[in-house]
Amino acid sequence: MWERVLVKKVKATLMDATGMEQTVTRLAHEIIERHPDLASLALVGIQRRGEFLARRIVEAIRRHTASEVKFGTVDVTFHRDDFRTRLPAPRVGPTKIAFGVDDLHIVLVDDVLFTGRTVRAAMNSLMDFGRPASIELAVLVDRGYRELPIQADYVGYSRPTSVNEQIHVHVVDVDGTDEVLLMEYGE
């Protein structure tokens, strides 16, 4: 019997550091535009890379408006629906929401929007902290293939992919470089 060996190779670079910076700035502007009252806004990054993207959007909002937007992180491991079929993540990141979420407009931030299950889990997790006025979603890349009726309100880059493709978002804080890669798996 031959063992199938899957090779992963970079098919395209979708964003480099400059492109990512521009996209993050644009997302920040779109968020500001829809939320004139920044005091009632909070950005919550989904662990792990969503945290760093959310941090950058908060930073971009500060640069342009000189106001500090509330910032938190959420880890969805305990709320995932695939606990029975997949191994639990060895590393559970911190959930830090140091403000009351009641009546706030919350923007969840993630790197890639795919099935929508992570976002569903993140919304459930947020509800454990109270009753936000609204929840919106900002993603750097939307790669399609939704399994739940979830759409992003702010999309950095939309790229329909096939099943043997993957989007890898690298952020300098975790991976040492800022880039978005389209990966392909083949034999």
Partner: peptide, 15 residues
């Protein structure tokens, strides 16, 4: 990580 869950208003997760 679960210590943090125990500090939430709703101290229960569906895991």
């Amino acid at each position: 990580s679960f210590r943090e869950v125990l500090d939430r208003p709703i101290k229960k997760v569906p895991t």
